[in-house]
Amino acid sequence: MPFGIAVFAIAISFGVLARPVMGPVAPIVMSIVVFSGAAQFGALAVLHAGGGTAAAIAAALLLNARYLAMGVALAPSLHGRALSRAAFAMTTVDASWAAASTGGGRFDPWFMVGASIPQYAGWVLGTITGVLIGGTLGNPNDYGLNALFPAFFIALLFEEVHDRRRAAAALGGAAIALLLTPLVPAGLPILAATAAAVVIARVRA
């Protein structure tokens, strides 16, 4: 439940921010079918900054590449038919995946499902609420809504960076973005940050 409430609050800000960029219906559909804060805020940030569709998709999917690693870790804990394994795997979201870890590389799939359902409800209901609120607001800057993007990404960064390699990748990504923002079209500085991950991954620990 606590997950669901935090997710609800974040989803409201997604709905409010997405409304002027995407209209009233698309943000809600996006939350129903994508259900990923990092990817949705990432794609929205690129579109909001004036980047193209391809850049928005690429940035969001690179942000979600972590699901590949999470799925690989989860695989040995899933049993039964392919359809049932797929159903469990689809409920993977960061907080539930982490909470479902029982140590020694094992996961409790039912625990993950139980943690994900309130988050899904919070995410979709929060988006609807945000879109409705967003429709009644005037200039978003009067309410400091322009600070919601950085605040949300900083929060995700705090969750993600828990060792020196990730800190180095983050510093590299930030430097690339600072350097490239004045030089190339919107969206590309974010994609170019991929280079930092590739370089740091090659540096021996």
């Binding site: 900054a49 972590r66 990404f153 960064l157 960076v161 390699r165 990504g173 930030a174 940050a193 590739v198």
Partner: peptide, 26 residues
């Protein structure tokens, strides 16, 4: 190795662009 670092690198870039970016200027 790369997959594990992608989110950190891209999130940091998003922080920079969303905090200081204004079109093509900072």
């Amino acid at each position: 190795g790369v997959v594990g670092l992608l989110a950190s690198a891209l999130l940091a870039a998003l922080v920079i662009v969303e905090t200081f970016g204004q079109g093509r200027s900072l």
